[in-house]
């Protein structure tokens, strides 16, 4: 295809991505170094007969709104927003570092700062859910592959439901069950024989619930892909392994898993990207008191009456940097493959 033809074919989609993905990234970069104008103050002298004159400092509404109108971005503050308490909190971290006698205490107190709290949960979620999804998906795929062929369609039908469900709705459906008044919540209370027990009460339990949701939601994705991979498993390799006396476990370990390895890489890549943006379950589980994520922090800044655009923008930029770091091994590998090919 010639360059010119390619250009016209590709133009609409390129324009959409440029305007609504590339430009917003520039936009958050710019917004993150500006902060809203402070109110313009003015001194008003009020003179009343007999009492005399007093000067008062009040907000000049007109001038303030005029200034905000003229420069909607606000005033330039450089990296201040990145370094403030809501984000990297450099001063606070240094202070904690000086005053903590052990590393454990340091991380404990670091977890009270909003950005590090969000970062901590996001990373824990990403790096626990991703391997669990792969493991669980593989187990379901192997088990389904072993059941009767006629049941497979049914199993796949029900398995797809947690995957296609709207994340917020899926989270709510699970949350209503584990609520202390819901069916699983009551069951846990009955099992533990403790009517006061609530899954929502402790941070650890909430984290586990969110991770269970993450695995429940994404395992079908891994399952479907691994199951398709199992269908292309070369029979002769399995038979050769059997003749060599491999046990069932050894067959899985040395024949099946290596065959599925490219698919595992694919699932891991997609899952890393998707789990890093976790936030609907936090809204659905109403869990922000116990767990926050980077995406949730942006959402929280943007919502509500006071839209803190600068703060959201700074968190966004750092999230994008996080994504870049997460993706860099994949990109480097793809680049090497590409170099090797040409």
């Amino acid at each position: 295809m010639r360059h010119k033809t390619f250009f016209w074919f590709f133009l609409p989609t390129a324009a959409a991505m440029f305007l609504f993905i590339a430009m917003p990234i520039v936009s958050v970069l710019i917004q993150s170094v500006f902060t809203p104008h402070e109110a313009v103050l003015k001194e008003v002298e009020t003179c009343t007969p007999l009492v005399g004159c007093t000067t008062e400092t009040t907000i000049d509404q007109e001038a303030t709104s005029a200034l905000r109108e003229a420069k909607p971005l606000g005033r330039f503050v450089g990296l201040d927003i990145y370094l403030d308490r809501g984000h990297l909190a450099v001063a606070e971290v240094a202070e904690i570092w000086r005053n903590s006698d052990s590393l454990g205490a340091f991380f404990d107190r670091l977890g009270n700062l909003p950005f590090y709290r969000a970062m901590g949960f996001t990373l824990t979620f990403t790096f626990l859910v991703t391997p669990l999804v792969i493991l669980f998906g593989l187990m379901v795929a192997l088990a389904v592959n072993a059941v009767h062929a006629r049941l497979k369609g049914l199993v796949i039908f029900f398995s797809l439901l947690p995957f296609v469900i709207t994340p917020l709705i899926g989270a709510l459906v699970l949350f209503w069950m584990i609520d202390s008044r819901g069916i699983i919540g009551s069951a846990v209370q009955w099992l533990a024989n403790d009517p006061g027990l609530s899954l929502k009460a402790s941070s650890g339990m909430v984290w586990i619930a969110l991770i269970v949701y993450g695995v429940w939601h994404a395992a079908p994705f891994a399952f479907v892909i691994f199951y398709a991979g199992l269908q292309t498993l070369p029979k002769d390799q399995v038979e050769a392994a059997q003749i060599d006396g491999a046990t069932r476990w050894q067959q899985v370990r040395y024949v099946v898993v290596p065959h599925l390895m490219p698919l595992v890489t694919f699932v891991a890549l997609i899952q890393l990207m998707d789990n890093f943006r976790v936030f609907e379950p936090i809204v659905g589980f109403n869990a922000s008191a116990h767990a926050t994520s980077l995406s949730w922090a942006i959402f929280n800044d943007l919502g509500g009456e006071t839209r803190q655009l600068s703060s959201a923008a700074a968190t966004s930029v750092m999230t994008i940097i996080g994504v870049a770091i997460l993706l860099s091994p994949v990109l480097v590998r793809t680049w090497r493959d590409f170099k090797g090919k040409t």
């Binding site: 990234i25 958050v28 943006r277 655009l309 966004s316």
Partner: peptide, 12 residues
């Protein structure tokens, strides 16, 4: 890119 980071860029 998490979509919410882009949303932060659209608002203003």
């Amino acid at each position: 890119m998490p979509p919410i980071t882009l949303v932060a860029g659209y608002m203003l």
